[in-house]
């Protein structure tokens, strides 16, 4: 038996290193290509008009998607209005009243499974609940669909934030005679606020790019919507529509819209990261 590394073993190691590096490069190529194309093609079409003007008809030059930006904001606002209270209240129950119980595990299981349900299913659900009831495709239906997508993220981050508040802080409040509600609303929630805010913005960023559920709930609108019970334009649906269009001007606008969404996600991710890093109390 010799105690030198056999040349075969060394060669195998070198081969595997090359293979792994190859994998990394092969995958890096498309991933960076996506970022690069979005930035370069998006920047070249960027102008002030895209924020203010309406989508152009085929073969027309110029135009923008002011209505889709406003529409996306509207739908996201509705989604946040529904998902934030639901997510935070449920997180409070799981973290403050039911910590470590079977029920808490049950809620966590439900949320994990919910977060794996395809987004288009949320769209079908919102269609069945809202569109069939109100009789029209609408911003409200889109908001409901996105809200269900956001709830798991909001609940999870809120629960994590609440759990990171030390037990001693709660005992201090209870020790001066605070009720549970006073302890949670005035001491625990404010302390957990940074991470809850991070969770809400992350979930909004994720929802901002969701297309499939909006395609079958909010539909699209070439003009500004006159209320939340009407079909409404959104950025992701605009990208989808214009990506399939044979007109260059519309395709260019799809890239600009993609750049806006990716930039939004990038900013939110960076802000959320630095927020999480600074998250020591006080």
């Amino acid at each position: 038996m010799s105690y030198t590394v056999a040349p075969m073993r060394k060669a195998f190691g070198a081969f595997m290193t090359v293979l792994a590096t190859g994998c990394a490069l092969l995958l890096a190529l498309p991933l960076f290509s996506i970022l690069w194309t979005v930035i370069s093609r998006g920047m070249s079409g960027l102008s002030l008009a895209v924020f203010t003007e309406l989508p152009p008809p085929p073969l027309m030059q110029g135009g923008g998607f002011g209505n889709a930006i406003l529409g996306s904001l509207t739908v996201l606002a509705i989604a946040a209005l529904i998902s934030v209270p639901f997510g935070i209240m449920a997180a409070i129950f799981v973290s403050e009243f039911a910590r470590g119980t079977k029920f808490a595990n049950f809620v966590r299981f439900g949320i994990n499974v919910l977060s794996g349900v395809p987004s288009i299913i949320m769209g079908l659900f919102a269609y069945a609940v809202v569109v069939l009831t109100t009789g029209t495709f609408s911003a409200l239906a889109g908001g409901v669909a996105l809200a269900i997508l956001m709830i798991p993220i909001v609940e999870r981050t809120a629960e994590e934030g609440l759990k990171s508040v030390p037990m001693e802080t709660r005992q201090g409040a209870i020790g001066v005679g605070a009720t549970n509600f006073q302890t949670i609303s005035q001491i625990v929630l404010p302390a957990a606020l940074p991470s809850i805010a991070t969770g809400v913005t992350l979930s909004l960023a994720r929802a901002a790019g969701e297309t499939a559920p909006l395609l079958i709930t909010a539909l699209f609108n070439n003009f500004y919507a006159q209320g939340i019970l009407q079909p409404i334009a959104t950025l992701p649906v605009l990208i989808y529509n214009f990506a399939g269009a044979p007109y260059k001007n519309q395709q260019d606008l799809a890239w600009v819209a993609s750049l806006l969404i990716v930039t939004l996600i990038l900013i939110v991710s960076i802000v959320a990261r630095s927020f999480a890093r600074r998250q020591h109390f006080g």
């Binding site: 991933l31 996506i34 979005v38 994720r206 790019g209 969701e210 297309t211 993609s258 996600i265």
Partner: peptide, 15 residues
Amino acid sequence: IELLAAVPSVVYGLW
């Protein structure tokens, strides 16, 4: 990589 996991699928489709 985290960022790419967050890029909307419609952008992947466009690309």
